[in-house]
Design a protein around this nucleic acid. Structure first.
Lengths: 336, 336
DNA sequence: TTGTAGGCGTTATCAT
DNA sequence: ATGATAACGCCTACAA
């Protein structure tokens, strides 16, 4: 292995000079810098990560804790994870992947061992068990998601309330009066997942403001459960003409079922999905959808951690604004 | 930060004793071991990762290189990544996430800096640019996928030839004579992606052996491209009654299109998908599908790296056997 | 069974 | 602008 000392010898300078060329923490004459840089590339030198972490008190690694069992749409999760990785690299940081099955101890382990300088938590729950560990160990962290108590933390998330409201407003604008919201599995609401509740809150509030009649039906996302949810909706409120879906699994079945039941989209029924744009475009008709900037979430989380690491102040809560993209699945309410 | 020395003092032993109870590399009397373990938990000691890597010449980290742009089904990729992480933890290893946009240099960087002890490459191409770096640096690695030249490497992959063959044989058994294979985007075949070609090879060979007439149509996976592919198939071979799909995006559209064109599945046409079981079960009718053990792929890759790290011999190529699960989308060929 | 001490490759504080 | 040198926390060969 090539060491800094060898580079120094090769360049005819002292080890500290090489170190400073690398870190840029003091000025170096152009001449010696050139020599050092040449030596580095000639020898193929790469600083030893462990030694650097030991002496420099920074591992240049952040940990990303992802859920092992996932109820949100996996590709979005993956996109966030990848954007975190790419953004971290721009700071010279690498990303350590942790699964949430290690629980709070995983966070403690990587923080206490100096393995990671900071932590990004995905899929944060309202009352997340990892948060006390963060507070107790003073770990620099960013949370993707919004816990019940975000004080002294740094959180980024989509503005789900706004997303829910956008759906209701869009359908109201189109003249729909009776709207159904097909949501996540009952279990998701039972454990008070923030994103699910906040979407519903925003949706309800906007619907109220516009005088819409609404129905909320949880749904497992399978064909059968979607069929069940739709049947109940149409039985309870036959006049329903607008559908909002926040369960990726239910989208395909819903479109099939509407077609089967003789309802043409968007002439007889409008569908608005809460999902990523690529997904919305896969369906036929392409779906009007509300999506948040997944990639941006990852970036922001990294920025937050880096700011904390460098002692810069950070906002406790950052909400990213979602956008509604109108496609083929929504249209004026049918006249009756 | 709690150090090993403090633990030693607290337990009234020497630092090396603490080190040895941790590593188990020499026998310790039960009495002192107890004392040390108590001190460790009382003080909340976690060995400093950097120091350990520096002194022990092992970072206890493996790097996982994932593609930044993905054409395979993302959830499967995610499942593999997570299973790698879980399996690695069982060896006391953590996983560093690298994206392939760093290219071969990313591998060189983590290997040369001692950041990672080994590397797992996902989405390996036939003539992968990262492989020379592996050879040149002597990095311990496992590849998920099968490159053109696998000599002196350790590769795991699904047995795609077998998967393709299973599809053809299943449809042949059911009496189908004309079969169409709806595949990945043309670009995937143009760059000779191994999994795509091998599936086709196995499919063709088995079809030949059974005297089937086959058609292969690449497909982008969108609704439109699927419609185009299907239209051509039915124009070229109106007698086609069996469909094999190896493009997750095309499945939904295909089912819709078959229905629209008045073909009932499975009475008029049979569909066999090459996709994960959870995905196959989401559709209606539930799809007969051939799937490989994704989680197992991750495990095996980790085992391979660990074996290499510990100087144990490893197989160059390990192929995992896929299984066909019969569901509702395949049935006897219609009599005509 | 346990203790002592040198060294791993950097960083950063003193000097010069 | 550059050099020498003492940590950093752990591992392990060598002693006892």
């Amino acid at each position: 292995m090539v060491t800094l000392a060898e580079v120094a010898r090769h360049a005819g300078v002292s080890p500290s000079t090489v170190s400073y060329v690398l870190s840029g923490k003091r000025s170096i004459s152009t001449a010696t810098r050139k020599r050092v840089e040449l030596a580095i590339s000639e020898l193929g030198y790469h600083p030893h990560a462990g030694a650097r972490a030991l002496a420099g008190k920074r591992s240049h690694i952040i940990a990303l804790v992802v859920p092992l069992r996932i109820d949100v749409y996996v590709p979005v999760m993956m996109e966030i994870a990848l954007s975190v990785t790419v953004a971290a690299r721009e700071y010279g940081y690498d990303v350590l992947l942790l699964t949430n099955d290690e629980g709070p101890d995983g966070v403690r382990r990587v923080a206490a061992s100096g393995l990671a300088d900071g932590v990004i938590l995905m899929d944060v729950e309202m009352d997340d068990a990892r948060i006390p560990v963060l507070r107790e160990t003073g770990t620099h962290a960013a949370l993707i998601g919004l816990p019940a108590d975000s004080s002294r933390l740094a959180c980024v998330d989509h503005d789900f309330e706004r997303a829910g409201a956008l759906c209701a407003e869009h359908l109201a604008d189109l003249g729909h009066r009776d709207i159904a919201f097909i949501g996540y599995a009952p279990a998701v609401y039972q454990r008070h997942a923030g994103y699910a509740e906040r979407t519903l809150t925003g949706f309800r509030r906007a619907a109220d403001a516009r005088g819409l009649r609404i129905l909320h039906r949880p749904c497992e996302g399978s064909y059968e459960s979607t069929a069940g949810a739709l049947a109940r909706i149409l039985a309870d409120r036959p006049a329903t003409t607008g559908f909002v879906v926040q369960n990726e699994g239910a989208i395909g079945p819903l479109l099939s079922l509407l077609r089967t039941s003789g309802r043409i989209v968007p002439e007889d029924a409008s569908v608005v999905a809460l999902c990523s744009d690529p997904l919305a475009e896969q369906y036929s008709p392409a779906l009007t959808a509300v999506a948040g900037p997944a990639r941006e979430l990852g970036r922001q989380a990294v920025d937050l951690v880096m700011n904390r690491l460098n002692g810069r102040p950070v906002q406790e809560v950052t909400l990213l604004t979602p956008e509604l993209t109108r496609r083929e699945s929504s249209g004026p309410a049918p006249v009756r």
